[in-house]
């Protein structure tokens, strides 16, 4: 990541396209998780589900998209975006902390049909938040060392695509576990 060479347009297209393959594979994990939830637990959710906490996580993650896009736009314009990426990571970290808090105070029995799916899906998603945060922090660090420029920043794009995927997946998760 430190040796960013000048990429051709074709090179940029390649890295961007190839990264979507990775995201597609990740998406299949959540397809499996969500379909298992409906297969095993049917429709409906228990009253103990902490809906306001789920909503707070959703809002934090959606809000993190704004500094994310601001950061990548700044890098695209040849300026530093590390600060903005850091803000996005901070919002993501708050969301992760809320999920940990939720697990610590969980009222749904883990052994129940709904409960085991809830824990499995939120746990898997928390792992993806952690991965996404790692990616954001690595590119923010690299950007603060001035390793990217207007032409070469596909790593920032990759971290942003992955983070957007994490946010979109949470929105789906919120619907699957808190609304249905």
């Amino acid at each position: 990541m430190t040796t960013v060479q000048d990429l051709s347009d074709a090179g940029r297209r390649m890295y961007r396209g190839a990264f979507f393959l990775f995201v597609l594979a990740e998406a299949m994990i959540f397809v499996t998780l969500f379909s298992t939830r409906f297969l095993l637990a049917g429709m409906g959710h228990p009253a103990e589900v902490n809906g306001s906490l789920g909503l707070a996580v959703t809002l934090l993650l959606v809000a993190s998209l704004a500094p994310l896009f601001a950061g990548i736009n700044r890098i695209r314009a040849g300026r530093r975006g590390a600060g903005m990426l850091g803000v996005a990571a901070l919002l993501g970290a708050l969301a992760l902390a809320l999920i940990v808090y939720d697990w610590a105070t969980l009222a749904i029995p883990v052994g129940s049909r709904y409960g085991e799916n809830y824990v499995m899906s939120t746990g898997y998603h928390a792992l993806h938040i952690l991965l996404g945060l790692t990616g954001l922090l690595i590119v923010a660090g690299a950007d603060s060392r001035r390793e990217f420029n207007a032409a070469n920043h596909w790593q920032v794009g990759a971290a942003a695509v992955f983070w957007s995927f994490v946010v979109l997946t949470w929105i789906a998760l919120f619907a699957v576990f808190f609304i249905f």
Partner: peptide, 8 residues
């Protein structure tokens, strides 16, 4: 497509 499914 299918390796992530069995992995899960």
């Amino acid at each position: 497509i299918w390796v992530p499914v069995i992995g899960t």
